[in-house]
Design a protein around this nucleic acid. Structure first.
Lengths: 128, 128
DNA sequence: CTGTATCCTGAGGGATACTG
DNA sequence: CAGTATCCCTCAGGATACAG
C-alpha cells in the first residue's frame, strides 16, 4: 500500500490534447487547480510527478494550488515514512465529485469552441 | 419591440436564495459574471436594473463585467433611440448556452454544500 | 525530493466623485 | 440614465534562490 506508484508517469505534453483551461470562460479554483485535479484523476501522484505535465508551474505556485485544494477538501496529502520523503497527493471523494461539473463545463466549451474563438477574436478586434 | 421592458424588476435580495457564488470553488468569468448572467436569464435588463439585485457592485465594476461578457460574445448591448438613453443588455444564444454548465456546477455545489462548508471550516481551522 | 523565502508585476476590484 | 475618471489596495502568480 505504501509502495511507490507503478502507474505510468504523466507526459510533459499531457495538456496539449486537452481543452486549454486558461482560455476558458470559467475557472475551478485557481488557475492551475483544474489541471492539478485532472492530473490526479488516474490516481495519487507525487509533487515532482505533478510538475512534469504542468510544465511552466513553479514549485511555489504548485504548493499554493495544492494547499488550496487541500484546504477545501478536494485533495489529500499523505507523507509516507520513506527514506525519500515521499509525499503523495490524491483526490478525495469530494474532489472526484468536483470533476463531474468540471468535465461538463469543458465538454460544453469543446462543443462551442469555434463560437468561443470567433467571439473572442471579434471582441479583441473591436476593443483594439 | 423597442418599448421598455414590462418584466417585474429584480429584487434587491435576488441572490439571497441562490447559491452564493463567491464561496464556490469555481468561477465563470470574473467575480460578478455568473450573477450578471443569471440576472439576464429572464430577459433583457437595463444597466440600472442590474445594479439593484447585485447590491454592492459599483458602476465601474459592473461596466467592466458587462464589457467582458460582451467581448466574449455572451451578452449583447443595445442602445435604443430613446429620450432616456435606454441601454439594454441581453443574453446571446452562446451566453444562454453557458448557463447550462453553470447551472450544473451550482447544482453540484448545492448538493454537496454541507461537505463544502465542513471542509472549508476544518481547513480554515488547520491553517489558522 | 519537497518544498520556503524574497522580490516583483499586473490585474481585479472597491470607494468616491464627476460627466454627457 | 449610463456610465468615466481617479485613487488605492490586495492578491494571484511568475522568477530566482535557498533549505531540511
Amino acid at each position: 500500500m505504501t509502495q511507490p506508484a507503478q502507474r505510468p508517469p504523466l507526459p510533459a505534453d499531457f495538456f496539449d490534447e486537452l481543452c486549454p483551461s486558461s482560455l476558458l470562460p470559467f475557472r475551478f479554483g485557481d488557475t492551475w487547480a483544474p489541471m492539478v485535479l485532472r492530473c490526479l484523476e488516474g490516481g495519487p501522484r507525487r509533487f515532482s510527478e505533478l510538475r512534469v505535465p504542468l510544465g511552466r508551474i513553479t514549485p511555489k505556485v504548485l504548493t499554493h494550488s495544492l494547499r488550496g485544494l487541500e484546504r477545501r477538501g478536494f485533495v489529500s496529502r499523505t507523507v509516507h515514512a520513506d527514506p525519500k520523503r515521499r509525499v503523495e497527493y490524491a483526490l478525495t471523494p469530494l474532489g472526484r465529485g468536483l470533476l463531474e461539473p468540471l468535465d461538463a463545463a469543458c465538454r460544453w466549451a469543446t462543443e462551442h469552441w469555434d463560437e468561443l474563438i470567433d467571439a473572442h477574436e471579434r471582441g479583441a478586434a473591436v476593443t483594439g
